[in-house]
Each structure stands twice: as structure tokens, then as C-alpha cells.
Write a protein that binds this DNA or RNA. Structure first.
Lengths: 215, 215
DNA sequence: CGTGCTCTTGAGTCAAATCAATTATTGTGG
DNA sequence: CCACAATAATTGATTTGACTCAAGAGCACG
């Protein structure tokens, strides 16, 4: 059942929901622009709006009762985010850099729209992939999967990708500490699988080896 | 958007999809009975059928390329399982004990049915909860959350619950080893939060303390 | 050209994994 | 019904990967 047309790369650790075009019959709002660190919505807000990223990067996270943070996903141009299962948002969303989004309102009836359904399945698949990584992989494998996922999302820009998120964001996404992420990146460099340009740009030198590690 | 009527206990680590009744307008098959260890479907099978558990317990798992296993969920009477995002199954399902299920076929159009949509959202929520546990909690917290989740699913049977799955199954569900699960259960006993009756029956002595640990 | 971030790197600790028996349990056939 | 095998669970000893704590180094910005 529930056929999704566009199979995502299974090595992606990021919450991509790869939308293929604007959904038919859905009233899409105009572009909203967000400054760096701007909150798009908070935990506890009323759910119902779905967002499409036009440019920039959005971080979606969730805080546990103990105050620990899980970053559920990073969303780039073309990605869809904001799905929630209840009436109230469990997650909050923040712009990591100057970003643009468009939003549209969904109710249950819109699931009959195949494009909306595909977005939801894409989201579901990305969570399942994330779960697999957190449930089975060690630090260097997680970081490798993460970097491949990011690079793939940037599409045709070649093997180079900018990381708009901090080491701490990556750590909270992968269930690690920022120091461990930093060391894993260092080890990947020593292994000649990546090159760092500054702290926030990576070049993937051996994508296949990274996938072997991370998948 | 996407209002789910029946909020699940957020401490549940298990993939409950709590269905409230038989879906309208869906042709439900008769009960299939499964012997212990019987495979209901395999990784690579054509997806499309959704299952409702009538009695017993079904384990759904996924094997990574490296051969590591993630148990994505345990499903008891009343639970729904079998959702997949692609045409092929990424997971396989096995009966942990003598069990009965009924299945029905879904296609994308059925998502317009609110009861089907609710099942899907229930499933989505259970994955997100699982993700939160794997991403933020330590061994004893994971096991506590798991036990509370199991006990809650057994409904009105009081604080006692049977565990039809092995320590290894629990470990692969929680991203731990079976020895660590065994020790965590032991520690919960020492803390007087649970009592074990044999290896496969638990009595929750202090549900609130367990939730505090696990949520 | 400081000041405040973020990132890196090092040293030490600790929780969980691994390795290795031992001890229940469960199942089977005599 | 009991002995025995097979499987599952516990427990102990040890190792290790990741966390914690603590400096520095690099960079971005006013």
C-alpha cells in the first residue's frame, strides 16, 4: 500500500520530505522570510500548518521533560516540515540562517490528495531512517550518514556542502555530544573520506565509503 | 491539522497504533492464526496489507546492511501494524507466540477515511516516541519506558504484564545489549519499582516513578 | 583588535558493550 | 516422571567507546 513515487536515498539521516511540486488544490501562502534564530512555531502551538522551505535551513527540535533536546530534522530548499500527529505541536522550529518558507493549512481531508500523502510518507520514511541510525549505529557511522544525507539534499552542487547547523545541533540530532561529533568528523578526515573547509563546509571525497560506513 | 482523537500515553516505547473499532468501508479479511515464530511477511515483500492483531503478539523488525537488527515494534491485541512507505516492505513481521491477525488492503485513497488516517497518525506518533527514547535516554530510562508502555497496552489487566519477547528482542528495540537490559531490569527491582515473576512477567510497583524515569 | 562564540583537542571517567561462565527455564524422549 | 539437552537469562570481569570536564584555538563581528 501507500506507494511513494520518489524513493529517497536510504542513507539520509535528515528529515527530508522531498516534495516534487506544489500540491494541487491547496492554497499556498506567500513567502515568509525569517531572520537567523527566528522561531517559526513553538512546542504547544496549535498544529495544522505545513511548511515548504524556499531557501535557507530550518531546524525542528523537541525538548523532553528532563530538558534534553532531540533535533528531529534539518530542512533545506524544497523540503516540507511541520507534520504533527496531535492538535498541539510537540516540536518547535527555528531558522538556522536567513530563510524563506511558504505555508499551507492541512486538515485530514487533504490526505486524499496524493501529493500531500506522498509528503507524509516521505516524512515517515525519514523518521524511520533516523530511527535505524539511532538504534543501530555508532558515532562515526552516524556522522557519516548525516553528512551524506546533507550533501545529497543539496542536490547538484557536487560533493561540497555547507553545514548551517552547529556541532551541538548535529549531536542532538544523532544522540551524541558535540565533542564526539567533532572527533568523528576529524576521524573521517584522517580516513580521507572528507575534507573540511573551515568548520562549516565539508567536501565528500569518498561518498561510497561514507555510505558503507553510514548505511 | 491531522487531529488524532486518541492520544496515546507518551511514555509508551512501543509501536502502538491503537485502533478504536473496525474501519468503515474497508473489507477486513477473516482471522489468520499464526504459530509461534511464524513469519507474517518478509523484508522485500510487496507492501499494501495492514494487519490488526486479534490476540497474541507480533514483532516487527528490520535488518541493516551490516546485519544489525532494529525491532521497530511489538504489537498486541487491538494494535495495527504493517504500514510501509514504499512498494516493498523494509521490515519483516513474526509472531512471538500463538497469535491471530486480520488483514485488509489499503491504497492511497483509503487515507481519506478518518479511521485509517488516525491509525497512520497513531503509528507516526509511536515512531516519534521511539525516536525520542533512542535519541535522549540511557539504559534504565529506556527499559522503564518500555515496561510502562507494555503494561499500558495490556489495558485493564492491572499492573502486571507478560513479556512475550526475549531480552534480546527488547535490547534490539531499545538499542542496547541483552545483558544491559537484564541488568536494568535487575536495577529496577532493587529500586522497588517492579517485581519479576519468572523472567517473563513483570509487576509495576511504582508506575509514576517508572514514568518519571522513562519520560 | 578585542570580545564572544564555536570548534577542537586532551585527559580522565563512566556507562554500556563485550567476553565468559553459571544458573534458570523449557522442551523432549526414555 | 525424570534425566538430559537446548535455550534463555543472569551475573561477573574486563574492555572500550562515548561522555565529561577543562583548556586552547580559530573565527566572526562590532
Amino acid at each position: 500500500m501507500l506507494i511513494q513515487k520518489d524513493f529517497r536515498n536510504p542513507s539520509s539521516a535528515i528529515g527530508s520530505t522531498g516534495y516534487l511540486g506544489l500540491p494541487n488544490g491547496i492554497k499556498l501562502g506567500g513567502t515568509n522570510r525569517h531572520r537567523e534564530k527566528e522561531l517559526l512555531y513553538a512546542q504547544g502551538d496549535l498544529a495544522g500548518d505545513i511548511f515548504i522551505v524556499e531557501f535557507g535551513c530550518i531546524r525542528v527540535s523537541r525538548i523532553t521533560l528532563e530538558g534534553r533536546r532531540l533535533v528531529t530534522g534539518f530542512y533545506f530548499a524544497g523540503d516540507v516540515f511541520g507534520f504533527e500527529t496531535g492538535a498541539e505541536r510537540q516540536c518547535y522550529a527555528e531558522a538556522l540562517e536567513y530563510s524563506g518558507t511558504r505555508k499551507f493549512h492541512l486538515d485530514e481531508r487533504d490526505l486524499a490528495n496524493p501529493q500531500i500523502a506522498d509528503m507524509l510518507f516521505g516524512y515517515l520514511e525519514s523518521i524511520q531512517q533516523h530511527l535505524l541510525i539511532l538504534g543501530t549505529q555508532n558515532a562515526i557511522e552516524r556522522v557519516a550518514a548525516f553528512l551524506v544525507g546533507i550533501a545529497d539534499r543539496r542536490g547538484g552542487e557536487g560533493p561540497r556542502a555547507r553545514l548551517p547547523m552547529s556541532r551541538c545541533d548535529i549531536a542532538d540530532h544523532l544522540g551524541l555530544t558535540l565533542e564526539t561529533v567533532s572527533r568523528a568528523i576529524h576521524r573521517l578526515q584522517v580516513l580521507k573520506l572528507i575534507t573540511l573547509v573551515g568548520a562549516r563546509d565539508v567536501i565528500l571525497l569518498d561518498r561510497d565509503a561514507l555510505i558503507d560506513l553510514g548505511a
